[in-house]
């Protein structure tokens, strides 16, 4: 995982730095002081290395805490794992917001389209039945008008 790699890389860096800044090298640079105080020189060097390592590790921990790096690394590992069977490059932002936001809208639009189609279908069916009633009503009115006309003529 990324968290492990991160820790390992930092530890390796520290290790190599400490190896480079060896006691021998320290003594070579502070020769005059070493000749005067060899034991103190050793003590100062040990403190220097120990303090440097502690500060660096503390800083790394602070960076991890502030940025929630452990959590992020774990999430990213999961996401990468899920995509492991995929070879082709994934989508990336085009830099044109107008284009990129389209796909965000599509699912809602499709849902809305299904809804409208359903509502339209239901409305059309309902109207078809009402239209039938209207036609029947018209026929009935025509019938009544004919009956009345016939009676009126008979009375006339």
């Amino acid at each position: 995982g990324r968290a492990q790699v991160f820790t390992t890389v930092v530890d390796t860096f520290l290790e190599k730095l400490v190896a480079a800044g060896s006691y021998q090298r320290f003594v070579n640079c502070y020769r005059c002081f070493y000749k005067l105080q060899p034991q103190l020189t050793r003590s100062i060097y040990d403190q220097f290395i120990s303090q440097l390592q502690a500060s660096i590790k503390e800083e790394i921990q602070e960076v991890k805490n502030e940025g929630n790096l452990e959590g992020l690394f774990s999430s990213l590992d999961k996401i990468v794992e899920e995509a492991k069977d995929r070879e082709e490059p994934a989508w990336r932002p085009s830099g044109i917001p107008e284009e990129d936001v389209r796909s965000t809208m599509v699912p809602y639009f499709l849902k809305h389209r299904s809804y409208l189609r359903r509502v339209l279908r239901e409305k059309e069916e309902e109207n078809r039945k009402v239209a039938e009633s209207v036609l029947m009503g018209r026929d009935r009115i025509a019938e009544l008008q004919q009956l009345i006309q016939a009676r009126q003529q008979a009375w006339q």
Partner: peptide, 15 residues
Amino acid sequence: NVLLPEDKVQEQYPY
């Protein structure tokens, strides 16, 4: 090859 979760729609609905 990795797509972030918030961008899943880009590959589901490439209109």
